[in-house]
């Protein structure tokens, strides 16, 4: 799945590189290709399926409206992720019930992720340990500030490199590094604190 996605994104990059930025005609195919990534990022950030779906939809609507303005300076994946990150930031800063929502989703969704560990062919003890680690990271990610969490998720879930993250978040590379470092420090502290 992951490999297929990467290959597809790479192919997309190639076509875009060849044909330039104007070739966004087959928007349906674009949506089909990029929707899982955008949705995953937003879901991991928001921890709320409904909101994540809405924001994903908004993201593609905005992309469709602005498809004439796409300069082709970055890949379409980066561009879409940038839109998603902007939407996420707007949503987070404008959410009036942010506090309560955060409280609620902490209660609701934390347990889900531990059970979602895909690699089931391990001993129960190892599996339990892995689930425990995943939960720890998940809780730690919930406590991170929005920017740090965004950078962290982009880096370690979406496997983007620092330049891409910088393009998506609109930050300089150094700033991205700093946020990433602080996020990892928090993770490490949480993991060791658990021991």
């Amino acid at each position: 799945m992951e490999r297929f996605e990467r290959a597809a994104v790479a192919r997309e990059r190639c076509t875009l590189g060849e044909n330039g930025a104007g070739e966004l005609e087959d928007f349906e195919a674009l949506v089909r290709l990029h929707r899982p990534r955008i949705f995953r990022f937003l879901l991991a950030s928001l921890r709320d399926r409904e909101t994540a779906e809405n924001l994903t939809q908004d993201c593609f609507v905005r992309a469709y409206q602005a498809r004439g303005q796409f300069r082709g300076g970055a890949s379409v994946a980066t561009w879409l992720m940038q839109i998603a990150a902007n939407l996420l930031r707007d949503h987070e800063s404008s959410g009036r019930l942010r506090f309560w929502r955060r409280m609620l989703r902490r209660e609701a969704d934390v347990a889900d992720l531990g059970a979602a560990v895909p690699d089931r062919q391990q001993s129960p003890e190892a599996l339990a340990a892995i689930e425990e680690q995943v939960r720890s990271i998940w809780r730690a990610a919930a406590d991170l500030p929005t920017r740090q969490r965004t950078v962290f998720l982009l880096r370690f879930v979406e496997d983007m490199d620092l330049l891409e993250i910088a393009a998506v978040t609109g930050m300089k590379e150094g700033t991205v590094k700093t946020h990433l470092f602080r996020a990892l420090q928090a993770m490490r502290a949480r993991l060791e604190g658990k021991k």
Binding site: F39, A116, S136, W138
Partner: peptide
Amino acid sequence: LAGSLAHFRGAVREWSDRA
């Protein structure tokens, strides 16, 4: 830490796929 993060990434992807 790298192992944990790898597991985390897998879990998030799995979760997202299900959702």
